[in-house]
Write a protein that binds this DNA or RNA. Structure first.
Lengths: 223, 223
DNA sequence: CTTAATATCAAACGAACGTTTGAATTAAGT
DNA sequence: ACTTAATTCAAACGTTCGTTTGATATTAAG
């Protein structure tokens, strides 16, 4: 009695991942999901309990792995460094590079999951934010601490802000919703999607590191 | 017969702006909007025609002014420069600074509109993206061209990408949905919201300029 | 073969959705 | 004062939503 339910579960998760990415949470109905997946409507509630829990399952399936991998990489880098601070570029690559490299891994959601995540990070619903906060709590604490050590001369508040900015630039870049892309004569360049993804990582990494290491802002007041 | 309808129209726009910001487009119902505004349900369809047209009216009310102001500022800077390229910092401030300074202007939506815009830029619906594309077409063309002139040694494709990254960092920073803010012990710093906004602009500007002027990425292949 | 747990199914639940209708009300023009 | 247009209103339209129900089918175990 395992084979059927596992197939049904995974098929629902795969279709839900794609539809939530394309139309958002509120814009996707349980009937669309189960219809596209070729399963009965009630199957979704049977296996996941509710629509909210379904989205959490969709995200958790990928985020559990992603953030465990991020921690594994940070552990490896830190034990390699033997107590010395890491380079900022290492830390940024461990966090954002690990995410972007999932784009090529179809077994872990590929570009579909990346876009879903980029969109979800800007969703307002309380249950989503609570869920994401818990999913990210440990990995953010660890990477934040690593950046504090790597940039001892930069005020911690500035590092946190710049982490926030980096997350935004990355989310937006991968969300691919592109309010911009319609306008920009994007064809200025290439080519197939594979090529664009190959080049996105180094492009984004240059930008993020440039922003992270920018001169500190001058505040007009002196509070 | 003017005073009533103008009041009703504006009250609907104000409430819709706030609710779309807080709960997203799909997550906000016409009944919530008209109910909170204290007007009849049918009034919204009478004045705006449909829910989609209402969102466009909400956004257009602010964006028309914002993008006209951006063009006005760019015109002023270019005529001041008398044919010579502008400084990148001028251009970035004209585009993003003008946006962020709306946060203090309650008559033009203040922080509520900024957050709504940040969220809306990542919405997937076709009608939103089409609308935004048209709203932004001219101002993006002009600012892109200014950046091309200001950074003659940077490939145009790189500039467009970095413009995209800057837009993402800014949207995310102002959207304030903060999947992050729940986790990050944000209290590390200050104080009241006014103070945070005062400091957001210089902080974001440093980050954006650092990213814009970062060393060019090295691609692993040589295509 | 029987039993019990697990999974799928068609059908329905009540609630909420965006929109429309047609009458009532208000304001403007003459 | 009368006419006409603009606006507000209560009520209802048909549709879609997430979820639940109870029967039926499938599988694993004794």
């Amino acid at each position: 009695m395992e084979t059927r339910s596992v197939d049904t579960r995974e098929r629902i998760l795969d279709v839900a991942e794609r539809l939530f990415m394309a139309h958002g949470y509120d814009g996707t109905s349980m009937r669309q999901i189960t219809g596209d997946a070729g399963v009965n409507l009630a199957a979704a509630n049977y296996h996941f309990g509710s629509k909210e829990a379904l989205l959490q399952a969709v995200l958790g399936r990928r985020l559990d792995w992603l953030n465990a991998e991020r921690l594994r990489i940070l552990d490896a880098m830190e034990s390699q460094a033997a107590g010395k601070p890491l380079k900022p570029s290492q830390i940024v690559d461990g966090f954002f590079g690990t995410l972007l490299r999932m784009a090529d891994d179809e077994d872990r959601g590929g570009i579909t999951f990346l876009r879903l995540l980029g969109r979800t990070l800007t969703e307002p619903s309380d249950f989503i934010r609570t869920f994401l906060a818990e999913e990210y709590r440990e990995v953010l604490e660890r990477y934040k601490a690593a950046l504090f050590l790597a940039l001892p001369d930069v005020p911690k508040a500035e590092i946190v802000w710049r982490f926030h900015f980096m997350l935004g630039a990355t989310s937006y870049a991968i969300a691919g919703t592109d309010a911009l892309r319609l306008i920009t004569d994007w064809q200025i360049e290439d080519a197939d999607a594979t090529d664009r993804l190959d080049r996105l990582l180094p492009r984004l990494m240059s930008f993020l590191l440039g922003g992270l290491r920018a001169p500190l802002p001058q505040f007009s007041d002196n509070a």
